[in-house]
Amino acid sequence: MVTVKVSSKGQIVIPKVIREKFGIREGDELEILDFGLWKRDSDSSNKKGH
C-alpha cells in the first residue's frame, strides 16, 4: 500500500513506483473507484470514514 497526501488544492501525486507499474503517463485519464475511504489521521491510526 502507498500513502499519499492531499494538497490544499485537493491534488495528490501518484508515486513514481505506481505510475511505472501501471504505465501511467502525463495526460492519461484515470477512473477513481469508490470502495469507501480509509483515512490515515495525523496520529497515524487508520479509520474508516464516509
Rank of each mutant, 00 (worst) to 15 (best):
S45Y: 06
S8M: 14
F22D: 10
T3C: 11
R19C: 04
K48I: 13
L30F: 01
S45L: 09
K5Q: 13
T3F: 15
G23Y: 03
I12L: 09
R19H: 03
R25T: 12
M1S: 14
K21P: 05
G49E: 07
K39P: 00
P15D: 05
I12K: 09
L37H: 07
L33Y: 04
D41T: 12
V13K: 00
D43T: 10
I12P: 00
R40Q: 10
K48T: 04
I24S: 08
E29Q: 08
F35K: 14
E26W: 05
I14G: 03
G23S: 03
D34K: 09
E20K: 04
E26L: 08
S44M: 11
K5T: 13
I14Q: 08
K16F: 00
D28S: 07
D28E: 04
F35S: 06
V2S: 12
L33I: 11
H50L: 09
E20N: 04
H50N: 11
D28Q: 05
N46L: 15
V17Y: 05
V4H: 01
R40D: 02
D41C: 06
D41Q: 13
G49H: 01
K5F: 13
K48H: 14
V17A: 11
V17F: 02
G10Y: 02
E26Y: 12
I18L: 06
K39T: 09
S44N: 15
P15K: 07
E20S: 01
V13W: 01
V6I: 13
V13N: 04
V17H: 11
I12D: 06
Q11M: 14
N46H: 14
G10W: 08
S42G: 11
Q11F: 04
G23W: 06
S7Q: 02
G36W: 09
H50C: 00
R40G: 00
I14D: 02
G27K: 08
I24Y: 02
S42Q: 10
K39C: 03
G36M: 01
F22T: 04
K9R: 14
E20C: 02
R25N: 12
K16N: 02
E31D: 13
E29F: 00
L30T: 01
L30D: 03
I12E: 05
R19L: 00
V13Q: 06
V13S: 11
R19V: 00
F35T: 11
I12Y: 08
E31H: 08
R19T: 02
V4M: 01
K47E: 12
R25D: 09
G10Q: 12
S8Y: 11
V13T: 12
K9Y: 12
R25M: 09
G36R: 05
P15F: 09
I24Q: 02
I32G: 03
L33E: 08
I32M: 14
K9F: 05
G10C: 10
H50W: 07
L37C: 13
